[in-house]
Design a protein around this nucleic acid. Structure first.
Lengths: 196, 196
DNA sequence: GAATAAAACAAACGACCGTTTGGTAAAGGA
DNA sequence: TCCTTTACCAAACGGTCGTTTGTTTTATTC
């Protein structure tokens, strides 16, 4: 018989989270290849070899950070959509939440757009699958707009928007417009039939 | 007295171009850090140390490739704009030319969006300056649209568009819509006052 | 054909890489 | 108390990195 949950060893994988956090910060700041296991070990105060008690390889560590990043972005976007609103409003809120994840948010989210799947070829498929999972959410939001045109047109809108959003970290400076304002501007540019 | 131009040593820097070409191809395909000087030397059939006769460092080599990439994209965009047309048509042609550079075109252009300025920190400023030079061209095109709204709105449109375009290589597959069609779809999504 | 410069070779430099191995202190259950 | 598991240290493994140095080949010029 399995022991009750309260008896589970509390000491298990204490530093795993610290490692993930440090890896996310370093990967987001310097990139995957520019971050060495020695950098990471120094950041959490252990020796390089000790990392391998918690993770089997650097690649697996990246996948773990990446998965956590996608999960966090998704959660933030879903939370922003909690109230039912108009389709365009929902899309704007999703964009704002996505952007906030990349810019204000934890380093995990930044890794998802900073580290390209080809940076760690062995993990390519895993990373792409994670990325697709998140993009499916935007597919729903765009489909809900009820726009004219075929599926290819909706796909174009989705890719246009996600590309623009994911590129923001390359030019964003904390002094300027905040993520919410940027999302609002982007959506305003895309709402049709409002010639003003 | 300087000798006439016809007497200038024709043998000067013969393989420099071959090196640049190979570097562009490798940087575009694998990224900057994933490409070693030994990979590059093997690609052009020389020994690693020989590269340093033509370029003082790997970083400088990247800057040279990057500059050539920006120059080629710019040239292609300007060529596409040769005939005078409406402002929106001009913007669409510029987008199509930009996309064709990234997708069909030489590897030089791909390096400009594949390699991020932070991948080689010492060259950051140089790469950013080159990128800005190219973006100024799009600033002109967007300003020429005569849109309502302030400069910040025009800036948002420019960054939205360039971000979306530069992200295309991450999802583009040769089988689907060609660069020209993608540019057309993107612009259609952005032309205001056409509710259909 | 000797002198000169261009362009490459051959070999190594020290530093750093991801990872492995074997040992060890400390905590928790029996 | 003994014993197992957890979590780490200490030290090294082979390999690759960007780069330097000294020498040699190759082409051009006088």
């Amino acid at each position: 018989m399995p022991s009750p949950a309260t008896q589970r060893p509390a000491r298990q994988d204490n530093r795993r989270q610290a490692l993930l956090d440090a890896a996310a910060a370093l990967f987001a700041e310097r990139g995957y290849r520019a971050t060495s296991m020695r950098d990471l070990a120094a950041a959490v105060g252990m020796l390089p070899g000790s990392i391998y008690y918690h993770f089997p390889s650097k690649d697996e560590l990246l996948v773990a950070v990446y998965a956590e990043g996608v999960t966090r972005i998704e959660a933030r976007v879903r939370a922003a959509l909690a109230g039912t609103r108009s389709a365009w409003e929902r899309l704007e809120l999703a964009c704002a939440a996505h952007l906030e994840s990349l810019l204000d948010g934890s380093a995990y989210a930044a890794v998802v757009v900073r580290v390209l799947p080809d940076d760690a070829p062995a993990t390519r498929d895993a990373l792409v699958a994670l990325r697709d999972r998140h993009e499916a959410l935007f597919r729903e939001l765009v489909d809900a707009l009820g726009l004219p045109g075929d599926a290819a047109a909706r796909r174009a809108l989705r890719l246009l928007l996600l590309g623009a959003l994911n590129w923001v970290p390359l030019w964003y400076r904390p002094g300027g417009e905040n993520p919410r304002a940027i999302a609002h501007r982007f959506i305003q540019l895309l709402i049709p039939g409002e010639p003003r």
